[in-house]
């Protein structure tokens, strides 16, 4: 079960994910990611505070978003990752690729105004 919320806060798009992001729910997220790219959003914060479980497909979806936004010369920042997803992020050393912050506000502050 995955719920997501996409909202514009100023010029930053905040994508909040709640629940499980895995092989089953990733297809639901895919159109949202496509939409972010179509709309050429270059400042994106992925809020994972409500994410309880992630698997390799889920990481793949976030990596895909990250790579596609970077291809538009934009950036994706990650906020609020905890619990199992945090463990996975640590294992994959995604902290070396993603700018990870405790809260959405802190992540947003890192985008140039």
């Amino acid at each position: 079960m995955l719920t997501f919320l996409k909202e514009m806060r100023g010029s930053v798009l905040v994508l909040s994910l709640k629940g499980n992001l895995d092989a089953i729910t990733v297809p639901e997220l895919k159109p949202e990611i496509d939409g972010i790219i179509t709309d050429r959003r270059t400042a994106v914060v992925v809020d994972l505070a409500g994410l309880t479980l992630i698997d390799s497909s889920g990481v793949g979806a976030i990596v895909s978003l990250f790579k596609r936004v970077r291809a538009l010369s934009g950036d994706v920042k990650v906020a609020g990752v905890t619990a199992q997803p945090k463990e996975i992020f640590r294992l994959l050393r995604l902290d070396r690729a993603f700018d990870i912050h405790p809260t959405v506000e802190e992540a947003m502050a890192k985008f140039p105004r």
């Binding site: 990596v63 990250f66 790579k67 994959l92 050393r93 995604l94 070396r96 690729a97």
Partner: peptide, 12 residues
């Protein structure tokens, strides 16, 4: 000892 997974960032 660990580095970033392969295929995420081209300049890792």
């Amino acid at each position: 000892t660990s580095s970033l997974a392969l295929g995420v960032l081209d300049n890792a």
